[in-house]
Design a protein around this nucleic acid. Structure first.
Lengths: 365, 365
DNA sequence: AGAGGCGACTTGATCGTTCATATTCGTGAC
DNA sequence: GTCACGAATATGAACGATCAAGTCGCCTCT
């Protein structure tokens, strides 16, 4: 391990005092242009960087953000959170922050890690992911006076007293319905989660609104189950077995969508041609499946940027009312959604089999 | 932000000196049992944790490990690295370390981040992932005197002067061949990467050795291409078009395997029944595909544990000769590999369609 | 001419630990 | 009786930055 240069060494070499070197980096306007140039030159020459520890000790701010690592299960939002972490690291680093990750199985253990990191003063704040109904973490953090932003709305809380950033799920399913209606579908079913799940209800609402606006609710069917391929397959199977079954499925997740595709295959239907399916999250499997899955993609990079932005405001300490940011997702059309059987194509083009770079912003609304 | 208790507050409350409190945590054997009990009680009562910054400043060790976040592309080893990160965080935390992540597009930028983190003294060492031929990072780190472990062997280097942990790819492909041979396959092709890729060559070697040992090399065919579904499909297509085509494929990655499955389908063959396919890495798609993909799974948790273990030795400073650890992967059999057409099943059972918890350690060798 | 103010830089104090030395106290040896 | 010694605990000095007050010219104003 090479010895790192200290501020003192830079000061001596440049013929100025410690403080002047410090100011060169933190408050350059205080220096005479000539001095500034000289000091910056020396800093560069020695490759000096202020010691993280010393600075953190003095300023009581670490410029590190803690973030839980969530299991990349491909049923749920796994793929999304993986992309989010990348974008988060990028966004953080561009603002001079670093991201510290930890992997815990439960919310309670996450709180234990929060406590550890806060007490040791190892991080300045947190990014909370996977908020859900009855989530105890926000309250714990608020009580502790910790700074944080949530990715995900505080479901079921009347007047949330913390900042959050989220993706408008209703907009996503609305786009899905518009897309399918544009392809001539009138019997569009919804595969959702059991009621009471915030994300699930949100996405259901978008489907319901759009179906209602189009006057298609009468023909609509809904089925709910826990997230997963098997459960999606089971409930899609039920809907397809009814008389006058749906020709399209809007699904709360890609896992459900995959289940719907399997259920269609089970009945000898060709997914895409006979039954259209739209998933949610555009998880990595979506573009690998056959047929490739039309899905609603979350603007993860924008979310990450907002999260960092909001968290930094939170950290700046000007305690103002919490910030709320709702970003819109967009639909990525692929082969799993095509013109309804027996319908004239009206607006939406069916994507060809080869889509080198996936079409972005192909939103219907 | 609540005010954190300091060592001084604990000392005052317990009626002892700072150093005694410090010793209670770091060198308990120096205290009289009675004092120790009293001090630990006070520490617990106040919820004291030593300040990360202060301790790092004094001891020059941060107990933080840096690790690059690699894009989870589902062609390459993406899924593996995602699992690795989880396991790494777990293993690190269990040893009192934290993991700091960053996301960079190129090796050069990774070096820039290394430099930044080292100069600021923000981390004690690194875990290097995705080592490859002509990798400049190890040499840079060695020259800088930084501590690190690589996940992946230093391909193409005669006498590597740093520690590494890796998975024995040759063992994996050997297991794949044994498995397929056990199912009665004699014409087992290999879909690999262009020569010169360390990982690719390693996995090729295992296939070659096992085929040779079984006397099957005469009938064997090999095709190579860049990793990916499309390229895998293309080269598998070529092999299937030959007279007397292979009945099984051992693939260097799951992406290649998926390509082989597609190629088989293209020719009207049923993957699994007419053509068996074995992938590598057991990426998340493997168990979602239809047929579900037999694949070689890397012992990621064990790798993570070893990485941390070796890195901590490295950090302890007793400079001894670098440590090398090669761990064995195992085969997870699924529907994509089945009894060879026209062959009697000899040893290996074909897994049923439902496999709630994937069989572990189903190694052939 | 002296007070006052401002720009440009310097100096001591401080953040909360641990390291390197004290100090204190009891006990056994001579 | 005191001297040496070890066990247990206490005290000053770092670590390397920033903060909060300096100091020192120099210019302006009265």
């Amino acid at each position: 391990m090479k010895k790192r240069p200290t501020i003192e060494m830079v000061a001596k070499r440049a013929g100025v005092s410690r403080q002047t070197v410090s100011n060169a980096a933190n408050a350059p306007h205080l220096l005479k242009p000539e001095t500034l140039r000289k000091v910056l030159g020396t800093i560069d020459e020695l490759g000096y960087r202020p010691s993280h520890a010393a600075r953190a000790l003095r300023t009581r701010s670490t410029r590190v953000i803690g973030c839980r690592l969530l299991p990349s299960n491909y049923g749920g939002t796994g793929g999304v959170l993986d992309r989010l972490l990348h974008a988060l690291c990028d966004a953080a680093r561009s603002k001079g922050y670093d991201v510290l990750t930890f992997s815990v199985p439960t919310d309670d253990e996450e709180i234990a890690v929060f406590e550890d990191l806060l007490r040791r003063g190892a991080v300045d704040g947190f990014v909370l992911t996977n908020t859900h109904h009855g989530d105890v973490r926000p309250n714990w953090l608020l009580a502790e006076g910790a700074r944080f932003v949530a990715f995900g709305r505080p479901w079921g809380v009347e007047h949330p007293s913390h900042s959050w950033v989220d993706v408008d799920g209703a907009s996503g399913t609305r786009q899905a319905v518009e897309h399918l209606a544009g392809l001539g579908h009138t019997k569009v079913a919804f595969l959702g989660l059991p009621e009471g799940n915030g994300v699930g209800d949100d996405r259901y609402r978008g489907w319901h609104e759009a179906m209602s606006a189009r006057g298609l609710l009468a023909k609509a069917t809904v089925a709910r189950a826990e997230d997963g391929i098997a459960s999606g397959r089971a409930i899609a199977e039920q809907l397809l077995a009814q008389p006058n079954p749906p020709t399209a499925f809007v699904c709360v997740s890609d896992a459900m969508a995959l289940g719907a595709i399997r259920a269609a295959e089970d009945r000898g239907l060709v997914p895409g041609r006979d039954v259209s399916v739209v998933g949610f999250d555009d998880s990595p499997v979506a573009s690998v499946l056959r047929p490739r899955l039309t899905s609603v993609r979350q603007p993860v990079e924008a979310v990450a940027q907002k999260l960092i932005e909001v968290l930094l405001e939170e950290l700046s300490g000007d305690r103002k009312k919490p910030s709320r940011q709702l970003l819109a997702p967009w639909l990525v059309a692929r082969e799993s959604s095509q013109v309804a059987p027996g319908a004239q194509e009206r607006s939406q083009a069916v994507p060809g089999p080869a889509l080198p770079s996936p079409a972005r912003r192909k939103a219907a609304s």
